[in-house]
């Protein structure tokens, strides 16, 4: 997970930590206490960011959480496994969606950016078929 840990995002959390936080927030908020304490200790800048710019943090939390986070996390082992991110969920059912011509083309274009097709499909639908947001997310969170 060293590679993933090196990818910074807007709020400076590693992709692994951000995923862990998103999973707890959407699925099991009863586990927030220890996780937040841990994050505060490891990211001293968080305090300032959350106090002065809570909107950024909220949007980071909600990005892609709205839909099919489970699939994103459970499926391909994109992030490798280190503890939290790897502990993700029970096996999810096969990803089964209907795709229109337009979707097909958009996914083709995203693949050309150099991402694996199965990952592209998941991210694309998780982003509610918004190609631009999907591309953005692929680049920020999933670039190896």
């Amino acid at each position: 997970a060293a590679g993933a840990a090196g990818v910074p995002n807007q709020i400076g959390l590693t992709a692994n930590d951000l995923d862990a936080l998103r999973q707890v927030v959407s699925g099991n908020p009863e586990a927030l206490g220890p996780l937040l304490e841990n994050m505060c200790a490891r990211y001293p800048q968080l305090r300032q960011q959350i106090m002065s710019n809570p909107e950024v943090f909220v949007s980071m939390l909600l990005q892609a959480v709205g839909d099919n986070l489970g699939n994103l996390m459970g499926g391909e082992g994109v992030e490798g496994d280190d503890g939290l991110a790897g502990a993700a969920g029970e096996p999810e059912p096969a990803f089964n969606v209907e795709m229109s011509e337009e979707d097909e083309q958009a996914i083709g274009r995203l693949c050309e950016l150099g991402f694996e097709r199965s990952l592209v499909i998941q991210v694309y639908f998780a982003c509610d078929k918004n190609e631009e947001i999907a591309a953005n997310m692929l680049f920020t969170d999933y670039q190896e």
Partner: peptide, 19 residues
Amino acid sequence: DEEKRGEPWKGNFLSKDSF
């Protein structure tokens, strides 16, 4: 005290599909 001594979550995370 409970918050500080809390154990990290060990179980599964509830995904949207399981929800």
